[in-house]
Structure formats: structure tokens, C-alpha cells
């Protein structure tokens, strides 16, 4: 046990490091303002815990419409990512690598392009197409962030299904479409759900495209940003906590899929 002391010190320090910012948010959310934002040196403990900040935030400010907008954009992004990601992941898995690699790189590049460089030119185009400030327009652009990830997850899923399964089904007289819908999709279902949920989560958090392409009808992260810049700090914090709950739940649930190789864009193998 004694020789493990450095290990336990490391665990304790890093746990404190990772949890401290969340603890600060909780302090501000559940303490009266005089012990948090109005104090010069705010005490790092809960004094007189209260729910007043939440009651005030949710009765005085509009939480519902940005919440619904965020949820609809995220759901659309999930659908688009899966709809494009399933065929692309399947095709890339079956193509010879001399063709698959450059196509993969092409998709990867979009993930590395600065969001703001894409968003500014699109904004003028969207005004023309009446997609500015719309749920559909924002979802179409946010899919850029999630599609590469969805493709990697789908490619990984399909490559774990042996080709022999497909050949066998074809020999048995199955038609191409029914092979896909009856055999490949059901087997790949866990991967598809993971791709959908991860896309949903990334869209839920996305800020750059949201603030540039839908400034008048903000999604939740943009609304929180507005609250903070307008000085409604407590409202911003209360909204932040509620906003965070679905993402924490999904992150912990999807821990298995949040592997270095996906996040790094498939460069690590």
C-alpha cells in the first residue's frame, strides 16, 4: 500500500482538477448570490442552499424555445449523420484501400477546417436561400461536425461483419436491397445507435455555427452565451446545469465508443 502513495496523490489531485469547475457551477446555482457572484472572495462551500436561482431563471426567462430548438436541431443532425454515414461507412469498408484512403482524407479535411471559415460564407448564401435562422439550415451545416465521426463508427461496425455473411445471403438468392435491410442493418444496429447519439450530443454542444447561422433564434448554448453577456449570470448558470445533464448521461453511457481513434479522426490505429 505504501509504495502506491504517489498513485493515490495523483488520483486525488486529478479528481479535484476535473471536478472543481463543476463544483463552482453548483455553488453558484444553489447558493444565494451574496455568497457567490456578489462576494469578493466567494467561500468555496454551500452556505444556505436555495432553489431560488432556478425558480427565478425559469420563471423570468424563456428556456423552453431554445431548449426545443436545440433538441430539434440535434435530432435532425443525428438523422442526417446516420443517413449519410451508413452508406458511406459501408462503401468505404468495401472499397479497395487505394480508393478508400483518399476519400477518407477528403472527409477528414472537412473536420479540420475552421468552423468560422465555413460559416461566414455560408451565412450570406443562407440569407439568400431563406435558411438563415432556421432549424433545417443549422442542422444541415452542423452535420459537417458529426459526419466524419459517424462514418468512422459505421465503417468500424461494418468491417466487423464478415463479407462471407453477405456472399452467403447472395448465394441464397437474396436481393441486394433485402441483404442490406434484413442482414446488415440489424447486425450494425448498436453502431448505428451510437453514431446517432454521438452526433446528437455534438450538435447539442455546438456553438460556432449556431451563433453565426442562427443568431436571432438561438439554440441553448447560444442563449446561455447571451444570458452571460447581458449580465444575467445566475440565469446562465441555471440553464447551463440543465443543459449539461443529457450530455453527461450520454458521455458516460457511450464511454465505450468515445475511443481515441474515433476522436482523433481515425489517424490512430
Amino acid at each position: 500500500m505504501r509504495k502506491n502513495i504517489p498513485l493515490w496523490v495523483g488520483v486525488a489531485v486529478m479528481t479535484a482538477y476535473f471536478l472543481f469547475p463543476l463544483y463552482v457551477l453548483l455553488l453558484i446555482a444553489f447558493n444565494p448570490a451574496k455568497f457567490t457572484i456578489e462576494a469578493l472572495y466567494p467561500p468555496p462551500i454551500f452556505k444556505q442552499p436555495t432553489l431560488n436561482n432556478f425558480i427565478l431563471a425559469f420563471t423570468q426567462y424563456n428556456f423552453v424555445s431554445p431548449f426545443l430548438r436545440s433538441a430539434s436541431v440535434a435530432t435532425l443532425v443525428g438523422i442526417f449523420s446516420v443517413a449519410l454515414g451508413i452508406p458511406a461507412g459501408y462503401g468505404l469498408g468495401r472499397l479497395s484501400s487505394s480508393l478508400a484512403y483518399p476519400l477518407l482524407v477528403l472527409v477528414l479535411i472537412t473536420n479540420m477546417m475552421p468552423g468560422i471559415v465555413v460559416a461566414v460564407p455560408i451565412s450570406t448564401e443562407f440569407i439568400r436561400l431563406r435558411l438563415f435562422n432556421s432549424v433545417l439550415g443549422l442542422a444541415l451545416v452542423q452535420t459537417l461536425v458529426t459526419l466524419p465521426l459517424a462514418i468512422f463508427i459505421m465503417q468500424g461496425t461494418f468491417s466487423s461483419i464478415p463479407r462471407e455473411v453477405e456472399y452467403q445471403a447472395r448465394l441464397d438468392g437474396g436481393r441486394f436491397r433485402s441483404i442490406i435491410t434484413r442482414i446488415l442493418i440489424p447486425v450494425a444496429l448498436p453502431g448505428i445507435i451510437a453514431a446517432f447519439l454521438i452526433s446528437w450530443m455534438f450538435s447539442w454542444d455546438e456553438f460556432t455555427y449556431a451563433v453565426i447561422l442562427s443568431p436571432i433564434k438561438p439554440t441553448l448554448p447560444v442563449e446561455i452565451y447571451y444570458s452571460i453577456t447581458r449580465g444575467n449570470l445566475l440565469t446562465g448558470v441555471a440553464f447551463s446545469l440543465i443543459f449539461t445533464i443529457p450530455v453527461i448521461v450520454l458521455t458516460v453511457a457511450l464511454q465505450r465508443y468515445l475511443k481515441g481513434e474515433y476522436l482523433s479522426g481515425g489517424v490512430v490505429r
Partner: peptide, 28 residues
């Protein structure tokens, strides 16, 4: 511990920024 270490991934950038803005305030 491994769950704790991935928690920041589940926190939106906006929320992380707000938490840090309270940690590092101009005064206090």
C-alpha cells in the same frame, strides 16, 4: 476515476467557459 477523467468531454465548451469565468474573475 476513469469516468471522472472523461467528464470534461461531456461539458459543453460554453459551460466550461462560464465555469472558468467565475473561477478567474477580474476582481475576486
Amino acid at each position: 476515476f476513469s469516468t471522472v477523467t472523461i467528464i470534461p468531454m461531456g461539458i459543453a465548451t460554453v459551460v466550461a467557459a462560464i465555469a472558468y469565468s467565475f473561477i478567474f474573475e477580474p476582481r475576486g
